[in-house]
Design a protein around this nucleic acid. Structure first.
Length: 687
RNA sequence: GGCAGGGUAGCUCAGUGGUAGAGCACACGCUUCAUAAGCGUGCCGCCGUGGGUUCAAUCCCCACCCCUGCUACCA
């Protein structure tokens, strides 16, 4: 209904896939959410002869990469080189058909990001804040706003953050805080002069509201629209676009030593620099793809990225002034794996580069399985059993088998030559009508970014073929009415040919095999639905099987592998590096003793906090502890615990906490009590 | 805790103000051209819970519960 093809004609498409962060490999969650859908969309557009550029690349800046480099004792550049290579290669092998897979460490990207920053800077749009900023001398680094806490100057709330006071809602600057404290070291940070630039998102609230809330109410996905509405209703804050860091795009103005663009600012610009690089390599002009009103810009992303692509990046583009805004941002939800959240750190994932090695030649199986189970409207679960079923029951039994039986019959009866289309029966007519209708049905789903639906309809065309064959029984009719069989097989072959067309966006490797078998040359979407894709006497090659059965053992091996990595994780759990050495005196300063929990209740309006009353032997005191996610209040009453008793009292959510309960953290983040045993008495000192 | 999205058959998902649908799985039947594949039929559901609006609610309103994301919170 809200089909933009009807209301607005686009001359070209710029399609982007979220830039994967170059500190790890690609897994099935990334694929199902972003790369498979976007590739399907782009392949479909290309088949319609649309002018389209498909953009992706590695996002290579930001603090996490510097941390990873430090951990592995290599340079940040070495980190990103490694994953840029692995991921680019893996995408390519899966048939994700980016026109370019670029990277944000490329000089052209630095140039582009600088230019855009400079343009906005020259227009005086940034709010410049060159006052002093807090610096943690112990950690030797500037502190991000939310790594500083202190007392709110408006409401005297003692636990206000550097950017905002939770209590009264006022937005703050870190230096407004009374008695600031570094969250990193706990020390008092010192003020050090530094300059930063802010993008005044707040000044764009009206334009954004008009654009999104009024303009895209009906064509954006509900999750995307809802999230944007939430942000806009809350009101936007100016956001710093620079940071005191070495790794990144240098801030291109004077007096900005040691500063780079904040990674969220430079990353989406990576789409633009990638387009420029592609244009350069292919002798094209990049600008129409980003600056012309008749270009349709579409961002494929995961749901965690909505605010950057719907609010922040559009503001950057508007501020720059010469760019178009995205027409749609089809964000997907998340994919789980065998019931658990995919986790890179816990190694709970199916990695693309590993899949490609372990399932050679089965790219389409993964593409199909992930598309069919893509988390379009809500989180979804990938299981190996489902993967097996998608292959065996659908790709093989329905799709592959139909093609095979048709081609086998053609060879058996006609030596591989396409038989003539004779008289058409009523049943034929009905089938023909459906063949004609399918491309439109599939296209309609694709236009609305409903890829699951689209791939289902593709499979329905194969179902139609199977039903047609079963109904017409050519293997029987051949004995009584051979003339009729020619028509039946002609139509069946046309279905095969049509399948090879409409399946191409989803399972391109299979489409390729089919067009070779059928000797079909040019594949265009507009040809789909035709009944003369194969002409009488055209020669069909010997059929080869399109899919092979995936056995239980193969699946079990994968499930075992997951279980093993889970076990491995526990065994190999890398201990955190030792903290710097301390003196015996330092240790002696700590008063750790046993205590008993007397009362426990959840702190209102928090997820993690329990307010505990504990008996330390010397007193009964209140301690606030962040354990509510793993323990119910009633379960901790009576617990014998260890407490750090002489810790400076601290106000947490308006409750003064006296001391800290000692907990041990498992690798998955869950907690358990550190205890001296159940027979311990309260008030014993630990030394 | 705030905000957003979701909670529909064993599994993955559609859907509508008028006593619920598809695919897979399962059962039975038909078929044998085909990779033990195909086709047909059937089974399975207090449409998260409790209220309300309505002649009528799974779909509208309110409250609550659960899952996910963003955000706050872990001395």
């Amino acid at each position: 209904m809200n089909n933009h093809h009807q209301t607005k004609a686009f001359k070209r498409y710029t399609v982007t896939s979220a830039l994967p962060y170059a500190n790890g490999p690609i897994h099935i969650g990334h694929l199902a959410g972003v790369y498979v859908p976007s590739d399907i969309y782009v392949r479909y557009l290309r088949m319609k002869k649309e002018d389209v550029v498909f953009i992706c690349g590695s996002d290579e800046h930001g603090v996490p990469i510097t941390i990873k480099a430090r951990q592995e004792n290599i340079t940040p550049q070495q980190v990103v080189d490694k994953y840029h290579q692995i991921n680019g290669d893996a995408f390519n092998k899966l048939g994700i058909s980016f026109d370019i897979y670029h990277r944000t460490t490329a000089p052209l990207h630095h140039e582009t990001a600088s230019q855009i920053f400079k343009t906005i800077y020259d227009k005086g749009i940034f709010e410049e804040n060159d006052s002093e900023q807090y610096f943690d001398e112990k950690e030797n680094q500037f502190l991000a706003d939310r790594y500083i806490t202190g007392t709110c100057p408006h409401c005297s709330y003692e636990k206000a953050y550097g950017d905002q006071c939770e209590n009264c809602g006022t937005s703050l600057n870190p230096q407004d805080l009374i008695e600031p404290k570094s969250v990193l070291s706990g020390n008092k940070p010192v003020l050090k002069k530094t300059k930063h630039w802010y993008l005044p998102l707040n000044k764009y609230e009206d334009v954004l509201s008009k654009w999104i809330l009024d303009g895209h109410k009906s064509d954006w996905k509900t999750n995307v629209y809802g999230q944007c509405k939430s942000w806009l209703d809350h009101g936007l804050q100016p956001r710093a676009v620079t940071r005191d860091l070495e790794w990144g795009v240098k801030v291109p103005v004077e007096d900005s030593e040691g500063k780079v663009l904040y990674v969220w600012f430079d990353a989406p610009i990576g789409y633009i620099s990638a387009t420029r690089e592609w244009a350069k390599e292919n002798g094209k002009d990049w600008e129409p793809y980003w600056k012309s009103d008749d270009t349709k810009l579409v961002h494929f992303i995961g749901k965690d990225n909505i605010v950057f692509h719907c609010i922040i990046f559009p503001v950057i583009l508007m501020a720059e002034g010469s760019y178009i805004l995205p027409e749609n941002v089809p964000a997907n939800e998340f994919l789980n794996l065998e019931g658990d959240k995919i986790s890179t750190s816990r190694n709970w994932a199916v990695w693309l580069h590993e899949y490609l090695e372990e399932f050679p030649g089965k790219q389409d199986v993964l593409r199909y399985a992930l598309c069919a189970t893509a988390p379009e409207t809500k989180d979804n679960d990938f299981t190996w059993k489902d993967f097996q079923s998608r292959n065996n029951s659908e790709l093989l039994a329905i799709f592959g088998n139909f093609v095979n039986r048709t081609l086998v019959l053609t060879h058996k009866y006609y030596e591989g030559k396409v038989p003539s289309l004779g008289e058409i029966t009523e049943q034929d007519k009905a089938v023909i009508e459906q063949i004609k209708a399918f491309p439109g049905i599939i296209a309609n789903s694709l236009d609305k970014y409903r890829f699951r639906e689209a791939v289902g309809e593709m499979m329905n065309l194969a179902r139609l073929g199977n039903k047609y064959l079963t109904d017409e029984e050519p293997w029987k009719v051949i004995k009584t009415n051979p003339e009729r069989v020619k028509t039946v097989l002609n139509i069946s072959l046309q279905i095969c040919a049509n399948l090879s067309l409409v399946c191409a966006p989803f399972i391109p490797f299979t489409a390729e095999k089919m067009s070779k078998m059928l000797n079909i040359k040019e594949l265009l979407w507009d040809d789909a639905g035709r009944l003369d894709l194969l002409k009488e006497n055209d020669l069909i090659n010997q059929p080869e099987l399109l899919f092979e059965k995936i056995e239980d053992e193969t699946i079990q091996k994968q499930i075992d592998k997951l279980q093993n990595t889970k076990q491995q994780n526990i065994i190999n759990a890398k201990a955190d590096p030792l903290k710097p050495e301390i003196s015996f005196d330092d240790f002696q300063k700590m008063d750790i003793r046993t205590a008993i929990v007397l009362k426990a209740e959840k702190v209102a309006k928090t997820k993690k906090l329990l307010k505990l009353e504990v008996d330390t032997g010397v007193d009964i005191r209140t301690v606030v502890s962040g354990i509510a996610e793993y323990f119910n209040p009633e379960d901790v009453i009576g617990k014998k615990v260890l407490i750090l008793a002489n810790l400076q009292p601290r106000l947490i959510k308006d409750i003064e906490s006296h001391g800290m309960i000692l907990m041990a953290e498992r690798r998955d983040g869950s907690l358990y009590f550190v205890s001296a045993g159940d027979d311990v008495e309260k008030g014993c000192k630990i030394s």
